[in-house]
Structure formats: structure tokens, C-alpha cells
Simulated scan of single mutants.
Amino acid sequence: MAWFKRQDKGILTKTEDKKEVPDGLWYKTPSGSIIHMRELKNNSYVCPDDDYHVRIGSKEYFEILFDNNKFTELDPDLSSGDPLKFADTKKYPDRINATQKKSGLKDAVRSATGKMNGIDLVVACMDFSFIGGSMGSVVGEKIARAIDYSLKNKIPFLMISKSGGARMMEAGFSLMQMAKTSAKLALLSEAKIPYISLLTDPTTGGVTASYAMLGDFNIAEPGALIGFAGPRVIRETIGKDLPKGFQSAEFVLEHGFLDFIVDRRQLKSRLTMLLKMLD
């Protein structure tokens, strides 16, 4: 029975022959579920064990929504300047440049047009990896231009929000994007062109207070954080404990601020069905 006995109790593999497991092959959800990244991607970045929706950006949403991942990007080269030149924003251009190099993005939103199950669609999608998805002048301008494209070509518009709010380094320029995008959406409404707003995790601050909540249909992904101010600020302001699940998509839906919650794996089919009903 010698084959059941290990003859050499030392380490059998030489150090130089050992292979390291590459980083980024596995993903662990907050609940502890572990999934291979290839399986996660094939499941629209939703963990099958607990339905946790992993935060993704414009690249992944475009892959999910556009047929064969074919689309034409709108205004891809717009980049933020430093219009205020305040003393405390002197490093802002450096941060923009560093973030652009690290993320491969020009700013916190990308817009594109293509077909979704054969239906023409304009999509503007925010990227949280770019300074927390903050809304600056470039974000507002790109969304406004995407809406103009929808108006000109009479194509439905989908806004995918994922943001920490206004970009304070641009102060008033940032806050004015709330009014600017809201006015553009009013033109879209007058033209009776559908606008669908998808709120993902997290959607907060000035984004929630403007275009994210102005859709003909406001929808959200499961478990998304949706709100204006943070829970701590609200708790200190009103002096009361907040309800369980406060600011979750499910809580917001229950209180009438969302039309429905959609699993990302059914996002493309649900949007297609909705737009066909509106046609």
C-alpha cells in the first residue's frame, strides 16, 4: 500500500517552477460568493449565487446593449479644462490628466448611438471610475449633445447614471449642468421622443436632483444606492434614525419614485419591449 504513503514530505515543486495565479481572475461579492471573471462577464456582470450586480462602466454597458457591440461614439474627444482657476483647484488639471491616463477615459460620461435588437438608440453612460462619476461641464455638455442627436434623428434616449454628484472643482459650472440637461430633456419631451433613465449604484447628488429622475420611465438595477445627500448627513439634519434599506432601489420603488427595477441580465430585452410598446 505504498502508493497511499508520501515518501518525501518536503516541497516537491522547485520555487523557480511555481506559477503565480494571475490577478483579476476571480471576483468576490460582498456576501462572500466567488465567481470566475469569465463567467461573471458572460452573466452580464451579475453573480449567479446572490444576484449581486457588480459596478461596471460604459464599456460593459455598451457591450450588453448594442447589437454585436457595434456603435458610433459621439463627441469622444471632449475634455475638461480649468475655467475657474481658483487657488484650491490649481491641481485640478493634473488630476484630470492622471485620471485620463489611468482610466483610458476622457471624462465621466460616454455617449454613443447604435442598434439594440434592431432599434435605433442613443445611450449616455456615466463612468464612476472617473473622479467618482462626478458631473462637470464636460459631462453636461456631452449629455446635452447626445439629447440633441436624439432630437435631430428622432431616436429614443437612454441615460445610465452612476455618480457621486456634482464636481466641486468646477463649482458653479458644475451646478449649471443640472439646469442645462433638464432644459434639453424638456425639448425631448415636447418632441415626444422617449427618454429612459437607468439609475445604477450609486446615483446621488446633483445627478439625482436633475436628469436621473426626469425620465419618462425611471428604472434601476437591484440594490442600487439612490439618493441626494448621504445617510449620515440626512440623519444629522433631521435628528432621527433612518428606515432599514433607506436609499436602496427597492426602498425608492416602494415609495413611488421608480417605475420598476430590472435585472441587468434582462436589461436589453426589457428595454426593447418597452420601446416597442411606445412605438
Rank of each mutant, 00 (worst) to 15 (best):
F228H: 14
Y27G: 06
S80A: 15
M178I: 14
F246P: 01
Y52V: 02
I226T: 04
G136Y: 04
A224Y: 10
K101L: 13
H53T: 10
G245A: 04
A166S: 08
M178K: 13
P30S: 10
A166Y: 00
L225P: 12
I147M: 05
S111I: 01
H36K: 12
G114T: 06
K276L: 11
E170W: 08
T181V: 15
L105A: 12
D17R: 01
I64T: 08
D51A: 02
G32E: 01
G239R: 06
Y211G: 00
E170Q: 12
S79A: 13
V123E: 00
G32T: 13
L253D: 07
M277N: 14
G215Y: 05
I238K: 07
K115I: 02
L12T: 12
S137P: 10
F66Y: 10
I196K: 03
L25I: 05
R167A: 09
E190Q: 15
K192V: 02
K9S: 12
P48F: 01
G205Y: 03
P83D: 09
I193T: 02
A191E: 11
L188G: 03
S134M: 12
D107F: 08
Q177R: 03
Y92K: 00
D75N: 14
K276T: 08
C47T: 01
Q7R: 13
D259V: 12
L242R: 10
N43R: 10
A124L: 00
V109S: 11
S161I: 01
R95E: 05
F128T: 10
E236M: 02
V138L: 00
K244F: 12
T200K: 05
F157W: 04
L84K: 02
L214Y: 12
L105E: 03
S210C: 03
G165S: 11
D23V: 06
L275M: 04
G57Y: 11
D17F: 07
N117K: 14
V139S: 02
K276I: 09
P202C: 05
D94K: 08
D148M: 06
E16S: 14
R167Q: 15
V252I: 15
L188I: 09
S33G: 05
R38V: 13
K59M: 08
E221W: 04
P30W: 14
T29K: 03
